[in-house]
Amino acid sequence: MTSLAAFCLIGGMLSVYTLLDGYDLGAAAISPFLTKTRAERSAVVESIGPFWSGNEVWLVAAGAALFALFPQAYAVSFSGFYLPFIVVLWLLMFRGIAIELREHLPGVIWMDFWDAAFSVSSALLILLFGVALGNLVRGLQLDANGYFLGTFSSLLNPYAAAVGVLAVVALAQHGLAYVAERVDGPLGERALRHVGRLWWLVFVAYLAVTAATVAERRSDLASSPLSIVASLAALGALGAVWWFAGRRRAAPAFLASASFLAGLLVAAAATMYPYLIRPYPGAAGGLTIFQASPPTATLALTLLISSVGLAAVIVYSAFVRRRMALKVTVHDDRSV
């Protein structure tokens, strides 16, 4: 029971991370296709500037929670995917300093460089996160201790690549909806129109990945009805994105997009359960939540402490967001 709660806590933290930092990453990735001037790019950065660091902490805290709650899984997965993990770290660093340092100099070349770094590193991060999730759902070739046996190129299988593409378009849509909600004027309106256009790509990618998941996992999908329900709920939320974007209502479109992502993540987690690291069908090994966790007493205490802390985080984050809610406007280009 505590193992299940720990699994849900980490899954929940990673989901919150996806919903929050997802719009930072998505807005950054789509920014070159959305904005027309440097001032508009500044407005996109300003819309996420006060929040991205707090959003990213959800990833750091989830990593630490995995460390505390499932040390074996933490050790095996992080060292098993050594190079991809280090590349993710480098990209996260680039993304972070791009946001923070871009505003420190008024120079044109300076800003353009960091804008490019910001967009490219964010797009690659989404792709890598998507590919990682795809491989976790599909399963991995593992040895008896749970260490990864496959090659780098085996991680880039068609299924994982399809999940990567879905992640890119879905988070780009999420980022557009966020910009539409946060930025006043023509840029916000254009972002909302782009949601309507990108929606079709998201829809096709969703159908393709759903079909591929059924094909990959047909033998055991029936045993996790939650994944089917969550997947259908995600489809409903995706429909709501289309509906609200068409009616020019940014805030509900953003919430619908968040629900869509949440539905996908719940479906993914439900297909993985009870595995933290699932073996590829037919292969041995794998780590379940029961093998990978410390004794119940420790686990329960850790869960209690982190739940109380996270509840406080949610309260004061919401408070700060409300106080900082002033909409962003595009400043004219006179300074650059």
Partner: peptide
């Protein structure tokens, strides 16, 4: 990590949950 995670993961998690969030959210 595998051998000691249930001990040292604990303060690292508390750092994230109780300190790093506080610092990042209010730095914004």
């Amino acid at each position: 990590s595998a051998k000691t995670g249930s001990v040292i993961g604990q303060p690292l998690m508390m750092e994230g949950v109780y300190a790093f969030f506080l610092e990042s959210v209010f730095l914004g």
